[in-house]
Design a protein around this nucleic acid. Structure first.
Lengths: 252, 252
DNA sequence: CGGTTACTTGATGCATATCAAAGAGGGTGG
DNA sequence: CCACCCTCTTTGATATGCATCAAGTAACCG
């Protein structure tokens, strides 16, 4: 135990704090991302039932939430902060397979273990569901399963887009695609499209785009020099010429 | 109409032939991939109902089955042959997002349009379902929806593996990963793991791995020179040193 | 058996990686 | 509140793996 990253959210010790379970929908009333999550299609009574099996949890930045190959006993809804999903090669190379934001779902797998590791990139809030209990609710609430299928389909489409980025786009196109992706996801959660909030490091972006830290940095500089973006405080990126960025991203 | 690739399987004209619909499960009796497909969890009565909405179709090699951005009115089960899924950039660059084999599912999307194009790479057999009718059966047969969620989760895991390949592996590691993937998928459909049957061209493999035709070819030659594989007739690849190939693929 | 397409091999170039070091934030303790 | 330190970012110089361009060879199909 202690401060090592090996302590996950499943052990309810060491810093990750459980807030609530069991009650009625009161807790979910204030949820700002309800229309994006698993819970979107449920009425108040159904929501209460779902609430009875969830634990809302805060995780500190840098904390590991779950690890590849570990038993997939829980699934999560992200309600705040940003999470990175990644896979490691034996020699330490890292591939980030996605970033999660409020409303996103975490931990879905058809196997008995997780397919990737997940780490909080900023302080984050999660709703944690025991997987078996959630599956137990499917019969009673088929809407839940339908919703999960819809979310999985969306993730699949996003994964396919990312394969195009990784396999066939040049560095500039990759970075432009990335900025527009973040911008679009802000819109989905009712945040202004511009400026783009970039909470992740250059190294994270590099591992997501199949580049190096240096190349990502150079590419930002080039976009800035062209006047298409400007870099602001706290990792904010102002898009100054969206059309140019979009053309670049699409490979026109 | 005519011979242009623009004629898809949805138009039931020009070469793609509908075999049957409507009957009882008789047609499915001989299906060799029933345990892999959507139909796996269904009993005979349920299968008959599913049969009543399906059309079994043969498609010629090279024929386009569905196109990105077109209305997603049908979904398909592949029962024979090999299909490539791809996305194009405006300047003609192509990214192949996956290859489908018997037992695989095609056309799943949460949106109203397909997320990619699909083309028969060899002569192929498909079971075609009207999407709305299939969704209509979900209430009656929740097993069907459960199965679809499982298949989508599997696809998602495969997509994440592929992101690691595309983003962080070198050419040799990519090709080794690819050969082992094909081998593993043969095992899943009860085909011997070795030799690996490679029905796709070097260009297809290149577009799947984010390489060029020439690099794929050179890499095959290198693996051959090391004695790890040998190239046989009809695109068969004999794996001679699986452990070496596996270590290479995993990046050890 | 000839034509066509796919594959292989070679020579060269370039985009991005790698190695290296300086500069900018951001948080902490005095 | 300021100074210091640590980490992240930026920039520069060089190296290299893969792409590109080019041509020969093998496989396949009618």
């Amino acid at each position: 135990m202690g401060l090592s990253g090996k302590v996950t959210v499943m052990d309810s010790g060491a810093g990750a704090e459980t807030v609530l379970g069991g009650g009625i929908a009161a807790f979910c009333e204030g949820c700002e991302v309800r229309d994006l999550t698993l819970c979107a299609p449920l009425d108040d009574g159904e929501l209460a039932k779902l609430c009875s099996i969830l634990h809302s949890t805060h995780v500190d930045a840098g904390r590991i939430i779950l690890e590849e190959e570990e038993p997939a006993d829980y699934v999560f809804n992200v309600t705040g902060g940003c999470i990175r999903l990644f896979k490691l090669l034996p020699d330490g190379r890292r591939a980030i397979t996605g970033f999660l934001f409020p409303g996103d779902f975490l931990g879905l797998t058809s196997r008995e273990t997780y397919a990737y590791s997940a780490e909080a990139l900023t302080p984050a809030m999660l709703c944690r569901f025991p997987r078996r209990k959630l599956e137990g609710l499917f019969e009673e609430m088929p809407k839940l399963e339908r919703r999960l299928l819809g979310m999985a389909s969306n993730e699949l489409a996003a994964a396919q887009d990312q394969m195009v980025v990784l396999g066939r786009k040049a560095a500039g196109e990759k970075v432009a695609s990335f900025l527009l992706l973040l911008s679009n996801r802000q819109v989905a959660r009712h945040v202004d499209a511009n400026p783009v909030i970039v909470p992740m490091s250059r190294a994270d972006i590099a591992d997501y785009l199949g580049l190096t830290t240096e190349t990502v940095s150079r590419t930002f500089t080039q976009l800035k020099t062209k006047g298409w973006i400007s870099l602001q405080a706290q990792g904010r990126v102002l898009i100054r010429d969206e059309e140019a960025l979009r053309d670049l991203a699409e490979g026109v």
